[in-house]
């Protein structure tokens, strides 16, 4: 159900780009598609950057595969983008590698879309320990609950923050 939503709405917001791809992107994407087939959807493929979209239930599996087979060992950031028109929140993990020198310049964006009314996603903290604070930040900024994360609680916002998560699109800055 969520997956079909993802496919339908994606073309509205993000243009699928097929640029002059370099060898690295192609081999990586080929390896992923042969393993996962239709479960993984390629969003764009540029030089040193590519983005793949998976459904929330396949997130952990894909991340594990990327870490074990391609040496993506840390996440530069985990963030979310709110799409109220689709009633979805997109979670992006920007994965990089320090152990595989071929992938030094490479950033793979692993993203998934969760339902906006009750956003829940599996935490990747057991696969990439570096996402700990990023996921905590995403929880308080966008209200995405990370299943398996030990501390889904306030991090950066004030202690007495009682409003909605501020990076949601319907949270408006005063006077604007």
């Amino acid at each position: 159900m969520e997956k079909t939503n993802t496919e339908n709405n994606q073309t509205n917001l993000i243009e699928v780009k097929e640029e002059k791809s370099n060898l690295l992107s192609s081999s990586l994407i080929n390896s992923i598609t042969t393993n996962f087939g239709d479960q993984v959807k390629l969003v764009y493929k540029k030089e040193n950057r590519s983005k793949i979209m998976v459904s929330p239930e396949n997130l952990v599996e894909t991340a594990l595969y990327l870490r074990n087979n391609h040496g993506f060992d840390h996440a530069e950031s985990a963030s979310g983008t709110d799409y109220p028109a689709d009633n979805q929140i997109e979670i992006n993990y920007h994965l990089g590698s320090y152990s595989n020198t071929d992938y030094y310049p490479y950033i793979l964006v692993l993203s998934t879309r969760v339902d906006r009314t009750d956003p829940k996603s599996n935490s990747l903290i057991n696969i990439f320990p570096s996402v700990e604070y990023h996921e905590r930040e995403t929880y308080e900024m966008l209200g995405v609950f990370f299943l398996g994360h030990p501390r889904n609680e306030r991090f950066i916002l004030p202690e007495d923050w009682a409003d909605m998560p501020p990076l949601r699109k319907d949270f408006r800055i005063k006077g604007r």
Partner: peptide, 15 residues
């Protein structure tokens, strides 16, 4: 911009 996310060194080193 629709969304801007800054991935900064300090936040990553905090861990």
């Amino acid at each position: 911009p629709y969304r801007v996310k800054a991935s900064v060194g300090s936040f990553r080193n905090l861990l």
